[in-house]
Design a protein around this nucleic acid. Structure first.
Lengths: 226, 226
DNA sequence: GACTTGAATTTTGCATTCATTATTCATTCT
DNA sequence: AGAATGAATAATGAATGCAAAATTCAAGTC
């Protein structure tokens, strides 16, 4: 009768979904790569049944492309897909900001202030990696404060889909400064608990992010054929 | 080397995903129902392997709840989940409206005008079923015009999740008139190609829809235990 | 030498089988 | 009688087996 079993037992398929998703996100499995069922079965020491179930789930998430009778490959994100995703993510961030403002506690604000200050510090010292990590955590924190689990998981899912642009999204100094400015304004809106303002700012922030990715993709040119 | 094979062959699992989704949406499989693998295998005349793959996909979509070693049931939508979904759908509609305004052609507008007029006709004659169908098609048309496939499919997915409230969403005459008014204003914004206005109106329209569902759910009270 | 043709191999889709876990139901004990 | 225990039954999770499809590769043709 227990809703949440105390000892969480995951099925092999569920475990594989997580492992494979991580491998795709971190780049062990690269976009466009053919996924060999026998090889992966070997690697994980499982049979094809749970692996295939996992691949079906990842295909539903948009991380894997399945072609009947012709196997599966890691999904390749087309530049058009990126163009489609960013406006959506912008809207979801905007909503998150709005909701977060309405529910923001003093403790939440203090935590965000601290994270923001630390992030600015990383920027000043030119520490890209910790900056990125903290940046991501700030956005996650806003979604947490928003208190809409569906919204958060939806955003997560879309974020995962654009994993591949993570590497190309190297900001120029100017773009980096712009991002910091965006965040400064966002903090101001949060302090003022101005939901509408924060909403607009976050959408704009995402638009800037989209621009950065766009510039990077354009520089790289058309991705090689798989 | 064909990207899109001419003869579309679907796997059994893919076929089952579609069939089961339809069964859930149309109510043949009711929310909270236990899903018996042997029974469904019997019904469709397939083995458990493709059926289980299909259930995993539906679980990823949020239509089915899987509990390890304890089988699967049709997902029950909690009122809180509805409360979480509507603001999201509102934002997505808002974005669709904005994009649609920017890309609207004269032909698109004419088609929408015709659909709108027909829908108003159904309203005047109190024809609920064709009204609903046309209402849905108008919204779909706006998403089509918006030209963002990812946005459309995301919206579809969320729409499917709230299938169960479809039955409770009987509008009162006042609410129905409100919905018509919303649509009148939306048409005006479209004619003026005022993206910002349409965006706001569609979000408000969704808020009204949420209110209707909320009232209905409150009247029904807490859903019976599965 | 490049293009086809077709057999050998590999991979995929699905059914079946086996082990493990949950559920049901009869029996026992308080 | 009602709760507790355990055997019988059914379900789920995962591995294996098998047929159909795709891929590979070597031989033959122009």
């Amino acid at each position: 009768m227990n809703e949440h079993p105390l000892i969480a037992r995951r099925s092999l398929a569920a475990e594989l979904v997580g492992r494979l998703r991580d491998m795709i996100i971190e780049g062990t499995l690269k976009a466009g790569d053919k996924i060999s069922e026998p090889d992966l079965c070997d690697l994980f020491g499982v049979s094809r049944t749970p692996l295939r179930e996992a691949l079906k789930v990842l295909a539903a998430e948009g991380l894997v492309d399945l072609t009947p009778n012709r196997g599966s490959r890691v999904a390749r994100i087309a530049p058009e897909a990126v163009e489609e995703l960013f406006p959506i993510m912008g809207m979801l961030e905007a909503l998150a900001g709005e909701l977060a403002c309405a529910r923001l506690t003093a403790i939440d604000l203090a935590r965000l202030e601290a994270m923001h200050a630390a992030m600015v510090g990383h920027w000043q010292r030119g520490e890209w990696v910790p900056y990125s990590a903290l940046n991501r955590r700030i956005h996650e924190e806003i979604f947490r404060i928003a208190g809409n689990a569906t919204l958060a998981s939806l955003y997560q899912n879309l974020m995962v889909r654009i994993h591949a642009v993570r590497f190309v999204a190297r900001k120029t100094p100017g773009r980096w400064a712009e991002a910091i400015e965006d965040h400064e304004r966002m903090m101001a809106a949060l302090r003022a608990r101005d939901g509408a303002a924060l909403s607009g700012l976050m959408r704009e922030h995402l638009r800037h992010k989209a621009d950065v990715v766009h510039e990077a993709l354009r520089q790289l040119g058309a991705p090689e054929q798989g």
